[in-house]
């Protein structure tokens, strides 16, 4: 964990995209951020809420919550 990099970065806007595209975008973007950083994903596909959580579980990343409708936060943990 890097203490200075725990705030949200620029959101990843995947609104209008069908699953699995938001999950693919998340998987591409997150490794570009430092460990500890939080990425906010905006996605309105009905499967996004479930599949972003499932991706975090499968890839060992942290699902940090849904602060607003169609918004999901993921923390890079490794």
């Amino acid at each position: 964990m890097t203490g200075s990099m725990t705030g949200p970065t620029e959101p990843l806007d995947c609104r209008g995209q069908r699953c699995p595209l938001p999950v693919i975008a998340l998987a591409r973007r997150l490794p570009e951020l430092p460990v500890g950083a939080v990425l906010r994903v905006l996605a309105d596909d009905p499967a996004a809420a479930n599949d972003i959580r499932a991706w975090c579980r499968m890839r060992g990343q942290e699902f940090a919550g849904s602060p607003a409708p169609d918004a999901y936060e993921v923390r890079r943990t490794r």
Binding site: C19, A47, N50, D51, A54, R57
Partner: peptide, 15 residues
């Protein structure tokens, strides 16, 4: 165009 309610209820990947 909704994911399976079964996969969703289980919290497993739906795509």
């Amino acid at each position: 165009l909704r994911p399976s309610h079964v996969l969703e209820a289980m919290g497993v990947l739906s795509h």
